[in-house]
Design a protein around this nucleic acid. Structure first.
Lengths: 113, 113
DNA sequence: CCGTATCCGATAGGATACTG
DNA sequence: CAGTATCCTATCGGATACGG
């Protein structure tokens, strides 16, 4: 529990999501999909530095599982898929922007203690 | 890179910190120290559910390494230590509150997609 | 009271090969 | 184009034992 303005916030739901976000490529994917909208598997792969397909696939499925991303199948030849953030994903990304900005800004300073 | 209001934010510094925060007990520790100020090792242990000492020790060192917590040694018999958040830790906790609140609020809803 | 050392099972990360 | 399957190593999480 965290206290803020007399309110109690349970961090347990956050734990799971933060853990997913902490894994390799995940933050990059969330940032990218938020910037660009809807992208195919290989587009994402190129943009985040060509991870192994199994890793990228795993990360995308994890993002789906926690409700931050969705997968849309486009029936063509060859088959295409399109990944994008859900409303929840977009909202979370928005809330995280100040965190990213601040962490970026303090990384060249000392440890603050 | 994340784009926000035409500004480019590098998520790389965040990756490391988010990863630390995602580990077991870490979010709980940050929340606790923010609520209570300065606490001893066993006080923290009790409050976060009595993890194994080696795990708690590891998490506290990681928080020190990324500059979010500090360790103060009080020379007594027996020896005491006092852990607390740094200014950086307090600031980050503050920025994360909206994230925690939001994630808590959506966890009983559907996945948003 | 405040840890470290060691061992052990469970995930995470990465290489290689193969498929609709 | 968009993955899955397998194998292998590193890190995480927990139990037990011991030390300043």
């Amino acid at each position: 529990m965290i206290e803020s303005n007399g309110r109690q916030i349970c961090i347990y739901p956050s734990q799971k999501v933060i853990r997913v976000l902490g894994k390799q490529y995940t933050l990059l994917i969330v940032g990218l999909l938020g910037n660009r909208g809807e992208l195919g598997f290989n587009d994402i792969a190129r943009a985040v530095g060509r991870p192994r397909a199994n890793l990228l696939s795993q990360r995308l499925r994890e993002l789906e599982e926690v409700g931050l991303a969705r997968r849309r199948i486009i029936q063509q030849r060859p088959v295409r898929v399109a990944y994008s953030l859900t409303d929840a994903g977009l909202q979370l990304r928005k809330l995280l922007i100040p965190v990213f900005e601040w962490l970026e800004s303090v990384q060249n300073n000392d440890k603050g203690g």
